[in-house]
Design a protein around this nucleic acid. Sequence first.
DNA 1: TTTTAACCAGATAAAACTATCTGATTTATC
DNA 2: GATAAATCAGATAGTTTTATCTGGTTAAAA
Lengths: 143, 143
Amino acid sequence: MTVIFSKKCEYGLQAVLFLATKETGTVTPVDEIVGKLNIPKEFVSKILQSLVESGIIFSKKGKFGGFALAKAPSKIRLIDIVAAIDGLNLFNRCVLGFPNCSPTEPCPVHDKWGILRTNAYDMLTEETIDKFKDKTLSKISSL
Amino acid sequence: MTVIFSKKCEYGLQAVLFLATKETGTVTPVDEIVGKLNIPKEFVSKILQSLVESGIIFSKKGKFGGFALAKAPSKIRLIDIVAAIDGLNLFNRCVLGFPNCSPTEPCPVHDKWGILRTNAYDMLTEETIDKFKDKTLSKISSL
DNA sequence: TTTTAACCAGATAAAACTATCTGATTTATC
DNA sequence: GATAAATCAGATAGTTTTATCTGGTTAAAA
């Protein structure tokens, strides 16, 4: 198999994009998140806990508790979520698995791949989660 | 962790690119391949066997046996190797892990990601392994 | 015909990733 | 207080990926 983001990261992105559709300040319990997204509860709970540590979301414990964004949606970039969960290794690591892949010791596809990788990095860095509110809502309504 | 190609696929690409630097018709034993590339022998053997089944390389058994390309290097595209090992799921699957991601039920980043994915697919489809001979040799000499 | 050097096939092991379970702690309401 | 509903923490289990092991088969050369 081949993967871009780990399952952890995919679920994390889904969950944070979902939280971005909610009213600022209101808190959403995991049960609602996994109910809407159809993803495994215990697993996602762990991911959300780690995103709390990363400072991307916060949690309110106890009855009527839940999760909410820790900052304005316009301040949370897709790359922040990826970096918090999978790290940014993807953007440093040689795509062919060669060691010491760099401009001075480039792998065969170093240049060709470098362009694609930079474009992906730039997209994830430019896009903030506030921009996906409508699209997230319509995707979720189709699930 | 996050990955583009599986380790299998990375090793497979390395090995086939290496075979492309060899004289046409000459056969290279696994020992030489893993000696130059510094990758695990038994694992790579399995991968090479599967590439024989896929028709990308052929093998010669017995003493002075080994592996060689089954076609002209200019006829082997990077995408052929990826397709044989990892499959092309990467280019169909939703990057956020949503089910039924399509133009009619797009995930939030469907359009943005689609462009990047198409560019990657096009690159792998356009590039044939004959184009990387020199770069492969210089990378290997630095290992 | 024996030896040697290679590929081949199946089983097994080790590691990483994905997922679940159990119980504890927190907090709002009755 | 007692109860209910939520997060939190640590242990465990299942699955996939990565890697190794053992022995068999093939083919060239002495």
